[in-house]
């Protein structure tokens, strides 16, 4: 554990709390992509199967359970409790275009050809692109509520901070994981356009609105 990793994990937890609070307080999931949330739930389900096989630390186990529970809760709130507020017409990204390539790539490029490792690899690849339906939705409507922008900023920061964690671990511990590093770079690049808009607009008190 190092400061970058801890900061990344906290940004991730913070993002999830912002999203759950937004949905709960406004009793609405307008502007949130249910497809991205389903993909994230799938990411955690396939990655954290090792909860049953590998014990790392209490911190590690608690965080894994937290991510599984919160993503399950988000999907429940969107598709069951506040279903009427779900903006499905704007959530039209075809997720099979993400699922199929990630599955094929994880079968081809992995650390070890075992069920657990392929599923772990699939989750890493899928996480890197899971935000695309959400970004697509923002681009379709041309705007995002401030609270949604804060959520996206915290969620994007998490993998960016992990990049620093990987640099640190490479230098200090000589540990590196090319699959995680490559996917983390892709994931962070996908947020760059959003980061730019967030810093130039939302932080100056304006609503996130895309140029027409």
């Amino acid at each position: 554990m190092n400061i970058f990793r801890l900061a990344g994990d906290l940004a991730h937890v913070f993002a999830i709390i912002i999203l759950l609070l937004k949905i709960w307080k406004t009793r609405s999931c307008a502007g949130i992509s249910g497809k991205s949330q389903i993909l994230f739930a799938l990411v955690y389900l396939t990655r954290y199967l090792d909860l049953f096989t590998t014990y790392v630390s209490l911190y590690n186990s608690v965080m894994k359970v937290l991510f599984l529970a919160s993503s399950g809760a988000t999907v429940y709130l969107m598709y069951v409790k506040f279903r009427a507020t779900y903006d499905r017409n704007h959530d039209s990204f075809r997720i099979e275009f993400l699922l199929v390539p990630c599955l094929l790539l994880s079968l081809l490029i992995n650390h070890e050809f075992t069920v657990m490792e392929v599923l772990w690899t699939f989750s890493i690849y899928l996480e890197s692109v899971a935000i695309l339906p959400q970004l697509f939705m923002v681009s379709k409507t041309g705007e995002a509520e401030s609270i949604t922008s804060h959520y996206l900023f915290a969620l994007g920061s998490y993998r960016a901070l992990y990049l620093l964690n990987w640099v640190y671990r490479y230098i200090v511990e000589s540990h590196y994981d090319l699959i995680a590093i490559f996917a983390g770079i892709v994931q962070t690049i996908l947020y760059c356009d959003f980061f730019y808009l967030y810093i130039t607009k939302v932080l100056k008190g304006k609503k996130l609105q895309l140029p027409a």
Binding site: D9, T54, N165, Y176, D177, I179
Partner: peptide
């Protein structure tokens, strides 16, 4: 060859 997944990172 890299060191791979150490199951620690989330």
């Amino acid at each position: 060859e890299d060191n791979g997944n150490d199951h620690d990172e989330l």
